[in-house]
Nucleic acid binder design. Structure first.
Lengths: 149, 149
DNA sequence: TTCTTTGCAAAATGTTTGCAGATAC
DNA sequence: GTATCTGCAAACATTTTGCAAAGAA
């Protein structure tokens, strides 16, 4: 299975370290991979494969998927599944937890600080170490909550 | 978009109420739907479409998907996405939150009581009303945590 | 009888794979 | 020079859709 969080490497500090990491692990730094890495560092947010294709312009999808897979192995990027449809990709180790609004479909982020006590409680009571960054949480955003009732 | 938690109906108390709900909303109670509902009530857990097909025996997949969709509209069932690949389906309103172990791939459940304070905190600070039952959380189970290090 | 549902086949969606030529190192 | 990468086409896995026949109320 393709598992999130498979890489044991710490997220690289910046774009240059990421590029260097590709090379030092036997990968070739191609124009496509460099553009992809630059995009992820520039955006600092979750992007669907479609968005990546659109933002990169003339690039092959399968090459992008392969580059993203390599980035994940190298601890540079990670992907999340938003449920129905597409996954999203982003830099590894961002300090936020993605939340999908089940009413309007928008994705937003809450700071990881909110999750700490919860993660500790679950760990203490159940032995399970949660990692809330690999799948989005689901909820209703403020606007939608207001609209619905 | 196919949204989780779309139904505003409370989960039916038992199988008979579920059956009655189908009928009272203009649905026909067929042998297939009855078998599916019985299965969900008997198992009280998340099942993949494959498992459902296997457990029900000779049933058409598209009919099962359509029945599950109807059950969701009626507030009888809900589905979750475990990421790569298949979704899982289960009765609506179960008092547990699914957790996917990112190391071994197993799905288990933690009691909803653990999530209450967290949900309140996020609501207060961000305005977002989390619903943690519609997507699994991700983490590492006790065995895997022990094995890995 | 009427409207819903089934079963089958085909489409749709998002991702993965095989392979030959191009490219980084 | 050689192993990795790209681009293309085809495969894949899961879910959805169209339609005619079957079935529930």
């Amino acid at each position: 299975m393709t598992r999130p969080g498979t890489s044991s490497l710490a997220p690289p500090a910046d774009l240059d370290s990421a590029i260097e990491r590709i090379r030092s692990h036997g990968g070739r730094v191609t124009a496509g991979k460099r553009a992809l890495a630059e995009l992820l560092y520039a955006e600092q947010r979750s992007l669907t494969a479609d968005e990546i294709v659109a933002l990169l312009g003339d690039h092959d999808r399968s090459a992008i998927y392969r580059s993203l897979a390599q980035f994940e192995e190298l601890g540079i990027a990670e992907h999340l599944h938003l449920g129905h449809g597409q996954a999203v990709y982003r830099l590894a180790g961002l300090p936020t937890v993605p939340v999908l609004c089940s009413a309007c479909g928008a994705t937003f982020h809450i700071n990881r600080s909110h999750t700490r006590a919860f993660v500790e409680r679950v760990s203490k009571h159940t032995g399970v170490t949660l990692d809330l960054t690999h799948f989005p949480l689901t909820g209703t955003c403020q606007q939608c909550a207001a609209t619905i009732r």
